[in-house]
Simulated scan of single mutants.
Amino acid sequence: MKIIVFVLAVLCCMFSACSTSEPNIITDPPEEKEEITLEIVDKNATHETKALLSNLWDIQSQSGLMFGHHDDLIYGRDWKSIQDRSDTKEVCGDYPAVFSLDFAQIMGARSVNVEFNADRRRTILEARERGEVITACVHLDNPLTGGDAWDNSDNTVVQQILIEGSDTNIKFKSWLDNLATFLSDLKDSEGALIPIIFRPFHEHTQTWSWWGQSMTTADEFIGLWKFTIHYLRDEKGVHNLIYAISPQLDFASNKEKILFRWPGDDYVDFIGMDSYHGRNTDALNANAKILEELSIEKKKPCGITETGIEGVRNSDGSNYANYWTKEILTPLIGKEISMVVLWRNKYDPTHEGHHFYGPWKGHNSAQDFVTFYKSSFTRFSSDLPDMYEMAEGITIQ
């Protein structure tokens, strides 16, 4: 655990030492923690899932920020499929508090990649054993055209999904069946289902995906969101998901943009935000403040669910040595946000490319990441409370 120096306490002792008398000092009793009730989409969610939601709220309300990294336990810059390895851990000595991964290969046509999916299961179990938080996005293939998630050649795909009995509807439900089977067999060492923060149809404010704003109407997107939840929760009996929405905001924006095509408070547990703002630190600062305000207003925990600069570079292509403290810590410190998740470090042992967003040993920002890690504001794996037991003073209903 990182040591926090209580400066105020030291100052009080100094002032006491300077005093020549010992006046009767009346101190206020310690403030009682405010009781709060949060709503959850799945009223039949497991105890551990409700507990995770409570702790997400508790961590951010205590001004703590969990660091996360996508695919951090599956592969890194110089390695892949090696148990217990992590680019993050090799830099700072600790695992990320949040492990992010993709469920598309579990669900759709790419689910035949048995070896890679075995790595997904293994690393989820390892992360849960250490008490870390697991979140999953879905770059899901296009069920109408057969293309990938970026195939936006036919704007009727969501219409077809929502037509009961259509070929696309049947295919999409079979992919949800695959996910339900995977999740229902995902259990920790005590036999309890492992909770996942699930963010389907992420970055729906953008135009690149078949579920994005240029491919769907508002009614279609909201219908798709609700259909997916009803099918997993009510038809398949999946009760270990926390449902997270995550629009992408790269420039300073407003509350309405975060709420773009909002499916309703009853259908969202967690408010995420993907932010590829580059070096526009003011934009991240402004949007994080709006996210914080919206989180408090709606009583739903929030976080930066994807961010980073490819290659951790300056605009001239040189390495950004103080990236972590300047671009991540500075705009987010003190804000009531539960997590910040960096995108992946592609396996590239020859270092021919620059497709990495997180820390790795050998990059010249590594020492700055250690400074980021040592901040009393950041949380890594060993800093976490028991995320799967209810946080004090918080009720989930």
Rank of each mutant, 00 (worst) to 15 (best):
G165V: 06
P359N: 01
A104C: 09
E129S: 15
D119V: 01
F356Y: 15
D94A: 11
F182Q: 07
I258A: 07
K226Y: 01
K257W: 01
D282T: 13
I25A: 12
E35C: 02
N44Y: 02
S81T: 04
G264I: 02
D141S: 14
N240Y: 04
S253C: 06
S275L: 02
P247M: 09
S100L: 12
R199A: 03
Q83T: 05
F201H: 10
S63M: 09
G64A: 13
S153G: 05
A180S: 14
G191F: 06
M339D: 00
L176W: 04
I26W: 01
L65R: 07
F201K: 11
S375E: 01
I271A: 08
K236Y: 03
D219L: 06
N314L: 15
L342A: 07
D316Y: 01
I40R: 03
E336P: 03
H351W: 07
Y276Q: 13
C137V: 04
N44T: 09
I290C: 06
K226D: 01
T135N: 02
I40F: 00
E32H: 10
C302F: 05
W343E: 04
G311R: 14
T228P: 09
Y357S: 09
A149F: 08
T27V: 12
D119R: 07
D383W: 01
T395R: 08
Q105L: 08
L294E: 09
A180W: 13
R85K: 15
P96N: 01
Q160T: 08
E352A: 10
W150A: 14
E292A: 03
P96E: 01
E310W: 01
L140Q: 11
Q248F: 03
H204I: 01
Q60E: 09
H69R: 10
S253D: 08
Y276P: 07
Q159P: 00
